[in-house]
Design a protein around this nucleic acid. Structure first.
Length: 377
DNA sequence: AATGAATACAACCGCGAAGTC
DNA sequence: CGACTTCGCGGTTGTATTCAT
């Protein structure tokens, strides 16, 4: 159990990889794939432990990795997902194609965390550091509401992760059959990093996206938008009392293997994976409340507890987050942009940081704009 | 030009989950 | 069913590079 002893062996090299080692590892994986990481180093003629080889491959050598500077869209996605998921880098990475969890984690620690801190936002909680802002009433409840959304998304991600694993197993077995008759390096490389169905977008955020399309660039200022973050669609529905409301109608023709549904049943959260074992799995807790996407009310989700309703307006949410969490692009629209504006990239002006102090407050204000204003939770 | 601080990124470590026997 | 292996994840460290003085 637990720790692998492979790295304890003497004589194994540690530290930075040389180009020769990279070449050996690449050549081996291209030719034979990586079946067993533990056995791989010896077979590939590397004086490394399997773990080190796996890390080097997954974080650096894999051909489907996009390296280099993070785009603004990617930054914003990371911030948003981190607000929802916390330090679950692998989960975040599934929504950032071609980026590794390690890279995202490093980027967060070296760039984004500091940037949020400068903005006066606690990078852990994504709340303003002056907690006095969160009084005992309204806003703290609203934060709890957002926390519920995060819980659901976490549960969904866990379910998706299992789907991905199952899908991977299936595809691997199929491809193994195919590759019996094919030994081309290209095919092997494809096999070796064919992990899963393409990552899907974060469904909790999808209603935000629907407001103005898939992650629209603010002011059209940012290149490299859209394509990098393109995500096939999974179907997610929140429902309560058996009434399902598809959050996303835009099912794309990817080869994703399943549909995941969230079902609220007397306060219990159930997750069903279609194509899986056809069972409803409980992540439940009777204190949770299930959001409903309001098809009649554009861009809104209603949280209903049976006694109380609260509707979150999605209108402007995307813009708000993008405006306040990113920043680099904001300098181009900082003239009289009201609440969403900002300026500079930190090295430029300070207005950006001033405005960004409203990052979370603004989110909460949106939440607080419930038509019913009913006390909740 | 030298040097120390800050930054960025690659890599390692240890733990827990999942899988296998 | 428990022991063991393997893998993946998140936290942390080490090192190279850049910047400031």
């Amino acid at each position: 159990m637990g720790r692998s002893p492979c790295c304890d062996k003497v004589g194994l090299k540690k530290g930075p990889w040389t180009p020769e080692e990279d070449q050996k590892l690449l050549a081996y994986i291209e030719e034979r794939g990586h079946g067993n990481w533990r056995a791989l180093p010896a077979e590939a003629g590397l004086q490394r432990c399997g773990k080190s080889c796996r890390l080097r491959w997954t974080n650096y050598l894999r051909p489907d990795i996009k390296r280099g500077k993070f785009s603004l869209q990617e930054e914003q996605t990371i911030i948003q997902l981190h607000a929802l998921l916390g330090n679950r880098w692998s989960a975040i990475a599934t929504h950032l194609p071609k980026r590794t969890d390690n890279e995202i984690k490093n980027y967060w620690n070296t760039h984004l965390k500091k940037r949020l801190a400068k903005m006066g936002i606690d990078p852990v909680t994504h709340k303003p550091k002056t907690d006095a802002l969160l009084s005992a009433d309204g806003q703290s409840k609203n934060a709890a509401n957002l926390s519920h959304m995060a819980q659901w998304e976490s549960a969904r991600l866990e379910a998706e992760a299992r789907l991905v694993r199952q899908s991977k197993l299936r595809s691997n077995s199929i491809e193994n059959e195919i590759n019996q008759s094919s030994s081309s390096a290209a095919a092997a490389a494809q096999r070796s990093h064919h992990h899963s169905p393409p990552p899907r977008c974060l469904d909790v955020l999808r209603p935000w996206r629907r407001v103005s399309g898939p992650w629209p660039p603010i002011n059209g200022a940012v290149g490299n938008v859209g394509g990098d973050l393109e995500s096939p669609t999974s179907t997610l529905s929140f429902s309560e009392n058996g009434a399902a409301h598809p959050l996303s109608a835009g099912g794309t023709a990817d080869d994703a293997t399943g549909m995941i549904e969230f079902m609220g049943n007397a306060g219990e959260v159930l997750v069903k994976e279609e194509g899986g074992d056809e069972e409803w799995k409980s992540f439940g807790n009777s204190t949770n409340h299930l959001p409903q996407y309001n098809e009649g009310i554009e861009n809104s989700i209603t949280f209903s507890s049976g006694l109380h309703d609260m509707t979150i307006s999605m209108e402007g949410f995307t813009e708000l987050l993008l405006s306040n969490s990113g920043g680099r692009n904001l300098s181009e629209s900082d003239s009289g942009s009201g609440g969403g504006g900002g300026s500079g990239d930190g090295s430029g002006g300070s207005d950006y940081y001033d405005d960004s102090k409203n990052y979370w407050n603004s989110i909460l204000n949106l939440v607080d704009s419930s038509p019913s204003n009913s006390p909740l939770f």
